[in-house]
Design a binder for these strands. Structure first.
Lengths: 259, 259
DNA sequence: TTAATAGTGTCTGTTAGACAGTATTGC
DNA sequence: GCAATACTGTCTAACAGACACTATTAA
């Protein structure tokens, strides 16, 4: 039991005499999907890669090693506010998907002391990271393809954190509409399918377009994009033949393993 | 940025000079399902209620109010270990389902200082809480039906924590096999259905038995219990007509909103 | 006999899954 | 015409959802 629990009331309350944590930082696994033109001359869907942002440490501990962006919270902000602030410092955007997913508190996980880290993942559209890309490897902040990041020896327990984040994002990719974080408001079925497969490589649905338009549409997951005259909007950005544009409706179906 | 980040290496490292958290407790939302015989004389499924364990505080702050069980962590244990220790103190069992689900860190959520709370939920079979039931309202530790607990004004932000926990447990009840935490190893379809409905009242599947035995069984969610001779095992504990017993196989199907 | 639960029969319309085929159009 | 993506046709087996029906047996 904690010492402060022995205190009877506010008037004679004294702060804890025992050891307290040395810090409560938040760390952010920032995912983005980069697109690169296939360069064949023909119109085609771009090559997409799931990438994660890492920072090279300049100080002890783990000097020189790559780590997740993050920083210590102060007593006037929640962990979520802290994470949003850190995200803002890295990407200069505030309105991206940011979600808490786990706490990391194993003893001695940080040689600086008793430090309990709160891990978030962020899904950032590549347009927000355009500068980052230009700077490239010269900088101490870089995007790494996830497989590459997973194979690296990261600072602290950040390797574990990246693995956990990826697992969580993959699960949510299947079961929610977070794919929209990586897509424009209006997109083609081909783009949607490609984004899902970029995050979840073993997602395969040969009849994807049919399922999502002729069956699930009954439940309102997607709706066709229309122009002012109410005519269906199409795009030929990625194909010779124009494709119908869709948008998410905001509806998320309930899932159950029992029926 | 945190002051310790300014330090160059271990040799000249000094601890933080700025304020650090005053404590990192874990709080536990402990759910159980109690069964009560209908008392009609006839064999019938019991009345089941989802209940949550609360403790009445004896000290400032929130003296006299009901709160979640929990306690401060120390530097030699993870938050999970801390939660398991607290759970052990309350229920004397160690092998129940215990799962982390969120952090609560709003400034001033605790008048004692900067205290960041880590919330777990536990699913405890009622057999482990038999004593608790006997003691009843006399004690300062009691089980409350969830609706009742949600309507109470709990200490700290524990009302919010209970709501969040319930939401999480309801979602997992639909999408995973955690129902098994409230069931014996072998159970009838009727029992399973009743347990699910106790946690998720709006779960309705008129053809539940058919779906789970003749369709999903293809995917191996449940298997029939058999005795040593390989003959199907049945139970008439809750019905005149004996019902087939089933067990979970350990298989959890993957869910997707896209197909 | 009745109450209480366990299960089956049967019907209709929908969906899944597979695979082949046609459509469109910039290059 | 080719390449690349966007669809549509068609078939079968499985499934969902509804609702009525039979089965079993202790009290």
């Amino acid at each position: 039991m904690h010492p402060t629990d022995e205190i009877e009331n506010e008037s004679n309350y004294t702060p804890a005499k025992y050891r307290t944590p040395d810090g409560a930082p938040s760390d952010i696994v920032m995912f983005t999907i980069t697109s690169e033109d296939k360069g064949t001359g023909k119109k085609a869907l771009p090559d997409r890669k799931l990438e994660v942002l890492l920072i090279q440490r300049k100080k002890w501990p783990f000097e020189g090693q790559w780590a997740l962006p993050g920083g210590f919270s102060d007593e006037n902000e929640s962990m979520y506010d802290c994470a949003r602030r850190e995200l803002m410092e890295e990407t200069s955007v505030a309105d991206v998907h940011l979600e808490y997913f786990n706490v990391y508190s194993e003893p001695n996980r940080d040689p600086r002391g008793w430090i309990i880290s709160h891990a978030f993942f962020a899904l950032v559209h590549e347009r927000y990271l355009a500068d980052r890309k230009a700077q490239d490897d010269a900088a101490d902040v870089r995007l790494f393809p996830v497989e590459e990041a997973l194979a690296m020896e990261l600072a602290f327990d950040h390797g574990r954190i990246v693995r956990d984040a990826l697992e969580r994002v993959r699960a949510k990719m299947r079961t929610t509409t977070i794919a929209k974080e990586f897509l424009p408001d209006e997109f083609t079925i081909g783009e949607l399918y490609q984004v899902i497969r970029t995050v979840v490589p073993d997602f395969e649905e040969p009849n994807f377009i049919r399922k999502i338009t002729s069956t699930r549409s009954r439940y309102g997951l997607l709706e066709e994009a229309k122009d002012e005259q109410g005519k269906p909007k199409q795009s030929n950005r990625y194909s010779q033949r124009a494709a119908q544009l869709y948008r998410f409706t905001g509806f998320v179906p309930e899932l159950s393993i029992y029926g």
